[in-house]
Each structure stands twice: as C-alpha cells, then as structure tokens.
Amino acid sequence: MAEQTTPRKSRPRPNSDGRREQIVSAALRVMISEGVYHATTRKIAEAAGVNVATLHYHFHDKEEIILSVMAVLASNYRGRLDERFSAPQTLHDRIADLLGFIWQEIESAPGEQLVLQEMTLYVLRVPQAAHLAADKEREIKQLYAECLGRSSDVSAADAPRIAELSNFIYACFVGILNQWLATRDTALLLKTTSQLVTAARSLWPAT
C-alpha cells in the first residue's frame, strides 16, 4: 500500500510590514521569467530584496510560496470576473462571453498562464503539496460555476447541471490553452473556442 501523506497546514506568520506580499509578488516575477522549477527560494529572496532567513520566517518552503501565489492570482481573477459579469445575461450569452473573457485574460498575461500550468505539474511531484493541484482545479471550476450560475435563466435547482457544464468548459479549454501556449496560433485558438461555445450551449438547450 502506498504511503499516504497528510497535507501540511502552514502556520501564520506576522505580516505587519507587508513582507509576505512583497515576497509573493517577487516570486511571481521570478516564476514568469525563469519558470517554476528554477525559481529557488534564494532567487525569490533576492528579487524581493530580503535575505533568505527573512523569506523563511514568512514562508516555510517553496511550496508554501506557490500556494500563496496561487491564492493571489485566484483572488485577482475572481475580482475581475465579478466586475465583468455584474449585468444580467442569459446562460447562452454568458457562455460565449465567459470564454471570451478567459481568452482576454490569457492574452493580457500569458506569462501568468504558463506559470499556473507549471505550478500544477510542479506540485504533483511533491507528495506533501500534491493536493494544491486539485485545490487549484476546484477553485477555478467553482469560479466558472458561480459566474454561469448567476445567469438570468438559471435557478438554484440547476446547480448540479451548472457544475457539470463548468467542468466541461474548463476541461476543454485547458487543452485549447496548452495548445496555444505551445504554438501561439491565435487563429486556431479562436476557432476552437468558438466550437467549444457551440458544444457547451448544446448541453443546455435554449428554451
């Protein structure tokens, strides 16, 4: 039987001087420029303008820094998503607009998208941090489910179907995103995304 590991919970550290935010911001910059695998705690400390001891006072290890970077990116993404989709829409319209919004986010910050993909692969190699990959997947799908669930023609009773629809959109678009990251073929991405919109709408026939 394979040994099971219990996800480690980080202990909160004092942050009165904003050091945690400073380190997290520096970590994202280093990860974008050098990749997640090469972003050592020493390089992150140097980019943040702190010594390694200070970094480890606020973060136990690289995996905890990755968790914090993920949390910041998700929080920022949620804010932009909520702002963009504040007006009422039917689900069919929202499906197309949501996928258009996702592409705009990727186009405006492709480095962040590449970092998120690298983070998933990185944490899967670290037994005590592997749960972070599943956490990231759940959080993004939940964001999409909340967005779609606020459509004007969707009710609370539709929540299970909305969850399935969100999973379908997310799983398919991850493949589209990975293809674009490899080829940077924007025309192909837009064509495939349009096909995904049609497929997603077919799962929820208009009434």
Rank of each mutant, 00 (worst) to 15 (best):
E21T: 10
D158H: 09
N15H: 01
F85S: 14
T41S: 09
I44A: 01
E3N: 10
D97G: 07
E34S: 14
M31Y: 03
L99C: 07
N15T: 03
E34D: 13
A206H: 04
V154A: 11
A133R: 08
S194Y: 06
P88T: 09
A156T: 11
Q113R: 07
A71K: 11
R11F: 01
G175A: 00
A133Q: 07
N15A: 04
L148C: 14
G79H: 06
A163R: 15
V123Y: 10
V126L: 08
G79A: 08
Y57T: 10
T120G: 05
A159M: 12
R84N: 07
F173E: 08
V50L: 04
A27M: 00
R13K: 03
N167L: 02
W180P: 00
L190W: 00
T54P: 03
A45P: 01
P127M: 07
D185Q: 09
I162N: 11
I44L: 01
R94M: 05
P205I: 10
V52H: 15
R19P: 05
R80H: 15
V72M: 14
A159H: 13
D82A: 09
W103S: 08
V174G: 05
A74L: 15
M119R: 05
I65P: 00
A26Q: 00
T198S: 12
S202Q: 12
K141M: 10
P7W: 13
E146V: 11
P160D: 13
D135N: 13
C172L: 10
V126P: 04
S108F: 02
T40H: 06
F101V: 03
E146S: 13
I169G: 02
S75M: 13
S155T: 15
V72Y: 01
F85Y: 14
A133K: 10
E21D: 06
T54K: 03
K141P: 02
I95H: 00
M119E: 13
L181M: 15
G149L: 11
R29G: 11
G18F: 08
R19L: 12
E118L: 10
A53P: 03
E112P: 04
I162P: 13
R8S: 03
H92E: 14
